[in-house]
């Protein structure tokens, strides 16, 4: 016959069980939210593709930043140009001055990661 455990100890055990259960339930959410905020080193297109270098002196941002976040910058610039008419040196059209090859600088990574941005349907890439 099993020993009767006291009410206090049973309560602690149950609390622990519930906390663990809730954390398990929460895990996918936490993983998704935290995971998306961490810049991933391995697995990014730059890791397994031959890196293309542009002939210009410096980019408008650090290379590492551009590799991961160029689309954010472009989207932001787009909003500023189209909505507010702020036309400075950081637009899609200016990028083309140094990044002269669409195959090397756009399509290569986008194909590898199966992304299909539709910039060049309307904008011209020489």
């Amino acid at each position: 016959m099993p020993e009767r455990i006291s009410g206090k100890r049973a309560g602690n055990k149950q609390t622990l069980l519930i906390v663990v259960l809730m954390l398990v339930i929460l895990f996918p959410l936490v993983y998704a939210v935290v995971g998306s905020a961490i810049p991933r080193g391995s697995g990014s297109p730059g890791e397994f593709l031959e890196k293309a270098t542009a002939p210009g002196d410096t980019c408008i941002r650090a290379v590492e930043y551009m590799r991961l976040h160029h689309w954010e910058l472009l989207r932001q610039t787009r909003e500023e140009v189209v909505r507010y008419g702020v036309r400075d040196e950081t637009g899609l059209d200016k990028c083309k001055n140094c990044h002269t090859s669409r195959e090397r600088f756009c399509d290569k990574c986008h194909l590898a990661t199966s992304l299909t941005p539709d910039c060049w349907g309307c904008h011209y890439y020489p």
Partner: peptide, 14 residues
């Protein structure tokens, strides 16, 4: 309490 703490931690980290 656990749910609330967990979610807020995750979003705060974000």
């Amino acid at each position: 309490g656990t749910l609330l703490a967990g979610t807020s931690c995750a979003y705060a980290f974000r």
